[in-house]
Deep mutational scan, measured.
Amino acid sequence: MASQGTKRSYEQMETDGERQNATEIRASVGKMIDGIGRFYIQMCTELKLSDYEGRLIQNSLTIERMVLSAFDERRNKYLEEHPSAGKDPKKTGGPIYKRVDRKWMRELVLYDKEEIRRIWRQANNGDDATAGLTHMMIWHSNLNDTTYQRTRALVRTGMDPRMCSLMQGSTLPRRSGAAGAAVKGVGTMVMELIRMIKRGINDRNFWRGENGRKTRSAYERMCNILKGKFQTAAQRAMMDQVRESRNPGNAEIEDLIFLARSALILRGSVAHKSCLPACVYGPAVASGYDFEKEGYSLVGIDPFKLLQNSQVYSLIRPNENPAHKSQLVWMACNSAAFEDLRVLSFIRGTKVSPRGKLSTRGVQIASNENMDAMESSTLELRSRYWAIRTRSGGNTNQQRASAGQISVQPAFSVQRNLPFDKPTIMAAFTGNTEGRTSDMRAEIIRMMEGAKPEEMSFQGRGVFELSDERAANPIVPSFDMSNEGSYFFGDNAEEYDN
Rank of each mutant, 00 (worst) to 15 (best):
E294H: 00
R348F: 12
S376L: 06
D88T: 05
G177H: 04
N370M: 05
G180T: 10
I25C: 09
G93T: 15
K452I: 02
A401T: 14
G490H: 11
Y52F: 13
H140M: 11
P423R: 15
I57L: 15
T232Y: 07
Q409L: 02
E18V: 01
L110H: 13
V352Q: 09
F479A: 15
M137H: 05
R26H: 05
Y52Q: 12
A129S: 08
D302P: 05
E465M: 10
A284M: 02
A182W: 15
T232F: 07
D480N: 06
G180Q: 10
F258M: 10
I406Y: 12
K113L: 04
V183A: 14
N21G: 00
M371E: 06
L172G: 07
V414Q: 03
I138W: 10
G5I: 07
L154P: 14
R470M: 05
F420Q: 04
S413Y: 05
E465T: 10
C223N: 09
K273A: 09
L68E: 04
T130G: 04
G404W: 13
A332F: 04
P474D: 09
G185W: 10
F488P: 11
L466I: 07
Q12I: 01
V183C: 01
P419E: 09
F39Q: 03
I406G: 12
M426H: 01
S467A: 09
V270P: 10
L68V: 15
A451I: 15
F479D: 13
R216F: 10
I225H: 00
N492M: 12
M481T: 14
R461W: 14
L264Q: 00
A251E: 10
N432D: 06
N321I: 04
V242M: 13
E339S: 12
S482P: 10
Q409V: 00
I406W: 12
L47Q: 04
A22M: 07
I41M: 00
S335P: 15
L307K: 11
N492L: 13
E465R: 02
L256V: 01
S217C: 13
F458G: 10
G435P: 05
T157K: 05
C223F: 04
K305I: 15
T23Q: 15
Y97H: 12
A427I: 15
G450C: 05
M481V: 13
Q58Y: 12
V408K: 13
I201Q: 03
R156M: 08
